[in-house]
Design a protein around this nucleic acid. Structure first.
Length: 269
DNA sequence: AACGAAACCTGCGCGC
DNA sequence: TGCGCGCAGGTTTCGT
């Protein structure tokens, strides 16, 4: 569940359930989830979870004087279980809280990463992030300055977290549809009006998705806070061959930079 | 520097 | 039923 609305939904749910609890044990069952440059994870044992917040697609736990940064990538999920419940094969990191709750990081494809740092704002992956669409400092000039020389498509640009952070494949497809921009349009061809539409539509689409609890495409399992409903509001994503909601032209699906890109060839010229 | 492709992983659905 | 292939909400790293 990895785009901004899903990440925020998970973080909010975690905050409701584990804020102010103390880490009493950590079991690492698959150590590649922990970044190589992480501080020793055991440093947070005995420390209290003081806050949980997000930046882009990262979940950040403030624990004692340190920060645990978690990125779910494609399939990372958190579950809260009974302390003595058997481990599922995809539960890679187990955090015991107050000796009575088992918080489990579950990741089928093992793409997710966790890192413990002293200063999260200074961590390399966080430092290079661009602004979230909700940031009051974002505007069309900010976007245009970053992309005016780029020969890559706007679809790739929206997926580049160093420009705008928070959009992933689903919402990038939806934002381009709402903005009536062809996904193949190059960065250097993007107009000021395009840029403004991208910002405005990112805000409205992400806000709507947050209200709906995110998008749940694979509903084979429920994880913490993640039975989203936004899949019912998608205009193009996963709708290949179906009629455009505006003009009834069949929605196209093509690959751009290795990612499935859905668009209306008539609305998005 | 810029770009595309591969790498990292597992599971599911489809066609044969 | 079984097998091979393509695909999945992301990011980093490797080649040219």
């Amino acid at each position: 569940m990895p785009e901004l609305p899903e990440v925020r939904t998970v973080a909010k749910s975690l905050k409701n359930k584990i804020l102010n609890k103390t880490l009493t044990d950590i079991i690492i069952r698959y150590d590649k989830i922990i970044e190589k440059d992480s501080l020793n994870i055991n440093l947070i044992i005995g420390q209290k979870i003081k806050d949980i917040f997000t930046y882009g697609k990262y979940i950040i736990f403030s624990i004692g004087d340190l920060y645990l940064i978690s990125h779910l990538r494609m399939e990372g999920k958190y579950f809260i279980k009974e302390i003595n419940e058997e481990f599922n094969k995809h539960e890679h990191i187990i955090f015991t809280l107050d000796n009575e709750i088992s918080l489990r990081y579950h990741d089928t494809r093992k793409f997710g990463r966790i890192v413990l740092v002293k200063d999260y704002l200074n961590y390399k992956a966080i430092k290079k992030l661009g602004l979230e669409p909700f940031n009051k400092n974002i505007n069309s000039k900010y976007i245009l300055d970053k992309i005016k020389n780029k020969n890559i498509t706007i679809k790739e640009i929206l997926l580049d977290q160093s420009i705008i952070t928070g959009l992933g494949n689903i919402y990038a497809n939806e934002v381009l549809f709402a903005s009536k921009i062809n996904p193949y349009k190059l960065g250097k061809e993007i107009t000021k009006i395009d840029a403004k539409n991208i910002i405005d539509n990112s805000i409205s689409i992400l806000n709507k998705a947050i209200i709906e609890g995110g998008t749940t495409i694979k509903s084979y399992t429920s994880s913490l806070g993640v039975i989203g409903n936004f899949q019912n509001f998608l205009n193009v994503h996963k709708r290949e061959g179906e009629k455009c909601n505006i003009c009834s032209t069949p929605i196209k699906k093509e690959r751009i930079a290795g990612r499935s890109t859905y668009y209306c060839p008539n609305c998005q010229k």
